[in-house]
Nucleic acid binder design. Sequence first.
RNA 1: GCCUCUGUGGCCAAGUGGUAAGGCAGCGGACUUUUAAUCCGACGAGCGUGGGUUCGACCCCCACCGGAGGCACCA
Length: 548
Amino acid sequence: MHKTSCTVPRPGAPTMDALDPTPDARPEALREEGSDIDPELVEQTDEERASIRALRLSKLAALREAGGEPYPYRFDRDRNIDDLRAEFGGLEAGEEREVDVSLAGRLMLKRDQGRLTFGQLRDRSGEVQLFVSAGVIGKEQLAEFNDLDRGDWIGVNGTVMVTKKGELSVKVSSFELLSKALRPLPDKWKGLSDVDARYRQRYVDLTVNADARRVFEVRFAAVQAIRNELARRRFLEVETPFLHLQQGGATARPFVTHYNALNMDTYLRIALELPLKRLLVGGLERVFEIGRVFRNEGIDTRHNPEFTMLEAYQAFGDYTEMMELTEQLVAAAAMAATGSTIVPVRGVDIDLTPSWRRVSMVDLIGEVVGVEMHPSMPVADARAILDRLGLSYKPTWGAGRCTHEVYDELVEHTVIQPTIVLDHPRETSPLAKPHREDPSLVERFEVIVDGRELANAYSELNDPVEQLARFREEAAAKAAGDPEAGDVDLDYVRALEYGMPPAGGLGIGIDRLVMLLAGVESIREVILFPTLRPEAGLSDADFPSGGD
RNA sequence: GCCUCUGUGGCCAAGUGGUAAGGCAGCGGACUUUUAAUCCGACGAGCGUGGGUUCGACCCCCACCGGAGGCACCA
């Protein structure tokens, strides 16, 4: 047993032995003088005895035995660690201040020097060293501190000092266990790198990987900046239903769920569009929603079945307003998240500073591919171009769809710097208003950055007769077996019949924006709990009671 | 859905046909200014799961279960 005694008996302390009258049945190896093994461990299997978790459970039991509480209710700290650094960061090596401070956080490292132990305490704002000296808190308290484990949550009280190596520290006068960790943290240097474990146990990932934490700070800053900019422009933030009775607002397969009370199937929303535009009919004029949408499609580095969209609608504007708005929102997000509107992506500086290049789809195709194409050209000519370019097409495609195909296959991925690609073929844009100068086009643009679509916007269709016709086309396609086609939303048509003001609408994929700003290549890195298959092998057997 | 890669103690990681290195953490010991502290000592896995081949399998084969990347589709 330990040479030091302390108020909390640790495994093997005399009180425990006294409480256990049974003969010492411990294996030879554990019965030696100085063995620190809790007698309770004898009740455990070999596997449990070997496990860190079992040892921690016995620590827990010992602590409670002594009247301690490993999971107390609260701790009053008086500042965050970054506050402490701001206040005392100017101290010289060796300086001390008789200022009482109290901090709370997770114990990340321990360096035991014998009569002195250094700890590393982390809260959300930063880390600071703990200086825990027997000369200050006494040998017993020091032994208790040394009995803490990496990963435990603690609260500390102490004064401020700087070590002779210049490290700002808290000279601990007392500490309190706030929550005992039963499972060990990953390697203190290598951290957690197994991506499966990182996503499934995001709590561990966030604990040990600073990069993971940084991504979500970036995400918050970007979203907050977008909210602020929209609010400044007098947009009203709203919340619309997740459960939709009809499929619409985008072309995508929905998740279907059953609502018992109404005994009917409902869809998880695939877009925010139709409810928001109803609000324009209602006269709200400028509305936006940042929210989760759900698409029953594949998972890859750029797609997660649930993801976050911003959609904003502005009455009395058209898509040219949306171009300016998109630029300002993205620039504001970049500035807030990274401090700059220039973000490095794979060695290339992407300059998000407004204004961005604006180019029509047909002009861009001419520039990149070197062919003259237009949705108004005879379909036979369009097909000839696709043949020459080695692209395939379906017999149902018109010249517009063919034009879009060339753009998708050969142009989009070549566009690295932010570019507003405008005036899409009418054939591929069923929800946008026809172009005021060219009936084969619609007033629509996409923003391409780093070869990927970041935003999509229209002059919104508000002609109820035209809208009904398009809904009917979709419904016919759905009836013919297209799972991505939507339903006829008669209430939406009725809303338009009351009159929707002319408006521009904008959608931005928030996850992709964050990927860009955070410099990560997988959408799972910007979603806290990405969709994964069920974890195999996690069972009750992984949670032995520890011998109680 | 298809293709390729991948799964070794709590974490990181070697081994690729001869019977599981090493590091971190944890455990015991030393140390009052460390910074991934250091030093000494003891311990811990039969290699995702199930079959098969072989005298012998972490290693080869098959299936299944996770994961990653790519293709297809989409934001």
